[in-house]
Amino acid sequence: MKVGIPRGLLYDQYHPFFTRFFTELGAELAVSPPTNRAILDAGIQCCVDEACLPVKVFHGHVSCLKAQCDLLFIPRIMRLYRGEYICPKFCGLPEMVLNSIYGLPETITEPFYADSMAGLRKWALRAGARITRDRRRIKAALEAAIAEQLRFKTGYDDQGYPIRVALAGHPYNLYDTFINMNVRKKLNRLGIGVVTEESMDEEEMAPEVASLFKKPFWTFARKTYGFISASVAGKRVQGIVYVSSFACGIDSVILELVRDRIGDFPMLVLKIDEHTGEAGVDTRIEAFADMLERSGRVEDHHSPHGQRLSCCESPV
């Protein structure tokens, strides 16, 4: 039995859990390669046009895997934390895929509630039954998968750069270096280190989130808002780089909340979509780097030349 796992959406965050679970059950795994142009093209071709880029990319991964596995895993992630939801596109992901891509093998699409042990167990028994009838083995696989996930550390925390920025956005936009044109590498090259929300404790975000007029409905919104606000309040970074996929509804809300909180603190919003030309992204990143660098210099600038502060001192 070969289980196919598409390397899209929350794969980067939860692959230790899912891969360990299916391996423990004795399944062989087929994982699609990191996103590339062929995958992007396939996704755009088969996915409904209204979907956001990461959902299209997920479709691309599925179409790349469909002939290589007997059982395809399409996670229907409903909830990660108690009392919260994630983007509705995750709940309907299996339907989108099943109705858009022909020639799929059997699929696992059981709803996944990760906010309680009971929820996880329910998912495991249903999903696991597709591979084995041995319930004890399924329960053991679940334990092993949870332990594997808890050991897993992810996220960026670059050290040793003169400037540091918070890199924010949905994880699948931040860690898919193809669709974000490797924004981290581009920033690093300009002397800017990045830090992501995984390097911040939830306790540190909590007071920021609690100060909102109501508790955010979405997990992504809570975490991203908490991370950005706490990074700015704690003076951990000199700027924010927010990677957002075009037409993302949740981002449109988060960005308004964030802007309201941080005022004129430097923030660059990078909208990503299907284009592969990098000139637009490069221009924005370079200009943002210039801005951070120059404004930093003005603050502690005591030039004997008086008026001419920094405009002509750029290290080109």
Partner: peptide, 21 residues
Amino acid sequence: QDSKIILLRNGVVSDFAMNTV
């Protein structure tokens, strides 16, 4: 093909934006 806004304060760029897609 594009439009921008650049805000300057004290002789340096303090914020900017460009049209999106």
